[in-house]
Design a protein around this nucleic acid. Structure first.
Length: 273
DNA sequence: CGCCAGGACGCCC
DNA sequence: GGGCGTCATGGC
């Protein structure tokens, strides 16, 4: 990754980034593609830090109205720019299916998101589809002046007060999560550095957090790249391409590999969801 | 109408 | 321990 400053913007060169593939691939739900003169522009948030980013040309991006200091402190880390995805994909390509998946959508990166926001987002995700998950999170943030609620304020909600979310049976799970985190019963920062099995068990103490959601929180919200969420799509990949198990060589980055596979299998079978 | 979606829970055996 | 019905909501 290279960058330079141009007025109030930061120009980033990174061949291994595609905005559609990274910001709209089911790992984050608060980025919106907006009309613009650029080929592709997204606006969104990380916790409460807003950003608009456009694709200037292939592999070159404008981070709009961001100071260098702020870019280095927040967005460099968020987009995982310190990780070399070319090398990662090269190592994955030892496997035939992974090679195809990396070639199909080589601009996917694993975002380093906030653990609390991920916890809530992926509780909402259970037995749900991506457009509807986005809608629920939109309505949630709208109710908090466009930002994501902190655990403390969210813990004041009840399943009844959350009816405007139309999140169905998940509302009671959200309340339990908010109460556990705000009371300190669950300390996400501590879980992030626990041995993985211990971390899984700790997350699953929260109601509505099972194996799949725990794995998503670990991967997307705690950068535990060995975490491997298995949803209905990845189940199809595993049964179709890996009847003898997922290749062991990719174990430490199985979660990132999973993200390429997830995007690959979904876009083979559905036009656009 | 039925089926499905980045599933988990409660209950049964 | 595994199997199965149920849980809201909305798009197709």
């Amino acid at each position: 990754m290279d960058y330079c400053i141009k007025g109030n913007d930061i120009i980033v060169s990174e061949p291994d980034l595609d905005l559609d593939e990274t910001l709209d691939c089911g790992q984050a739900f608060r980025w919106k593609k907006i009309p613009s003169d650029y080929s592709c522009t997204y606006t969104g948030s990380f916790v409460n830090d807003c950003l608009t980013v456009s694709e200037l040309k292939k592999g070159e991006f404008i981070f709009h109205n961001v100071s260098e200091n702020y870019f280095l402190r927040k967005w460099l880390d968020y987009f995982d720019f310190n990780t070399n995805y070319s090398e990662l994909k090269k190592s994955f390509s030892e496997d035939e299916t992974l090679a195809k998946a990396c070639k199909f959508a080589g601009g996917i990166r694993l975002l380093r998101q906030d653990s609390w926001e991920c916890l809530i987002s992926f509780i909402i995700s259970q037995n749900n589809n991506i457009p509807r998950i986005k809608g629920i999170i939109d309505r949630l943030c709208e109710n908090y002046e466009g930002r994501f609620p902190e655990p403390e304020e969210f813990s004041a909600e009840t399943p009844d007060s959350l009816s405007y979310l139309r999140s169905g049976f998940r509302a009671k799970y959200l309340c339990d999560a908010a109460q556990r985190v705000s009371s300190g019963e669950t300390v996400l920062r501590d879980i992030a550095s626990m041995p993985i099995e211990e971390a899984r068990a700790e997350l699953k103490k929260i109601k509505g957090v099972g194996p799949k959601v725990a794995e998503c929180v670990l991967l997307f919200g705690m950068y535990r790249t060995e975490a491997f969420p298995v949803d209905v799509w990845i189940k199809r990949v595993l049964s179709e391409y890996y009847p003898n198990g997922f290749p062991a060589f990719a174990k430490d980055n199985a979660g990132i590999a999973q993200q390429y596979l997830f995007h690959y299998i979904r876009n083979l079978q559905t036009a656009n969801v």
